[in-house]
Amino acid sequence: MLRDIPPILSPDLLWSLAAMGHGDTVVIADANFPAEGLGPRCHRLDGVSATDALRAVLKLLPLDTFVEEPAFTMQVVGDPQAVPEIVAEFQQIVNATADAPAKLGSCERFAFYEAARQAFAVVQTGEFRLYGNIILTKGVIGG
Rank of each mutant, 00 (worst) to 15 (best):
Phe90Trp: 06
Asn32Pro: 01
Arg55Phe: 00
Leu13Phe: 07
Arg109Cys: 03
Arg129Pro: 00
Ala100Cys: 15
Met20Tyr: 09
Asp79Phe: 00
Leu13Cys: 11
Ala116Ser: 15
Lys103Gln: 15
Asp52Met: 01
His22Val: 11
Pro7Trp: 00
Pro6Val: 08
Asn133Leu: 02
Ile135Trp: 04
Phe90Lys: 02
Gly78Leu: 08
Ala121Gln: 04
Asp79Pro: 01
Leu61Ile: 09
Leu17Asn: 04
Leu104Asn: 07
Asp24His: 09
Met74Val: 08
Arg41Gly: 05
Asp12Thr: 12
Asp12Asn: 12
Gly78Asn: 07
Ala119Asn: 04
Met20Lys: 05
Thr73Gly: 01
Leu58Phe: 08
Leu14Asp: 10
Gly142Pro: 00
Leu61Trp: 03
Leu54Gln: 03
Ala111Val: 06
Val94Ala: 09
Leu2Gln: 12
Leu13Glu: 04
Ile141Thr: 14
Ile141Lys: 14
Pro11Tyr: 05
Leu136Gly: 03
Phe90Met: 02
Gln91Ser: 13
Gly132Thr: 05
Phe90Gly: 01
Arg44Ile: 13
Leu63His: 04
Trp15Asn: 15
Asp30Ala: 06
Arg41Ser: 13
Thr73Ser: 05
Arg117Thr: 14
Phe33Gln: 05
Arg129Phe: 00
Ala102Lys: 14
Val67Lys: 10
Gly105Cys: 10
Pro84Val: 06
Ile5Thr: 14
Ala18His: 13
Leu38His: 08
Ala82Val: 00
Glu127Gln: 03
Phe128Lys: 09
Gly126Ile: 05
Leu17Gly: 05
Lys103Cys: 13
Ile93Thr: 11
Ala111Glu: 09
Val123Phe: 00
Gly23Ala: 07
Asn95Ala: 15
Arg44His: 15
Ala121Cys: 14
Thr125Cys: 04
Arg129Gln: 12
Glu127Arg: 00
Val27Cys: 07
Glu127Val: 01
Leu13Gly: 05
Met1His: 13
Ile28Arg: 05
Phe112Tyr: 08
Ile135Arg: 09
Leu63Phe: 08
Arg44Leu: 15
Leu9Glu: 06
Ile28His: 01
Leu58Gly: 06
Ala116Leu: 06
Leu60Val: 13
Gly105His: 07
Leu130Gln: 11
Pro80Val: 05
Ile28Gly: 01
Ile5Glu: 11
Pro40Arg: 07
Asp12His: 10
Asp99Gly: 15
His43Ile: 11
Ala116Ile: 08
Ala18Ile: 13
Leu63Trp: 03
Pro40Met: 07
Ile8Ala: 04
Pro34Arg: 14
Pro62His: 14
Phe120Val: 04
Glu69Ser: 13
Ile86Val: 15
Phe33His: 05
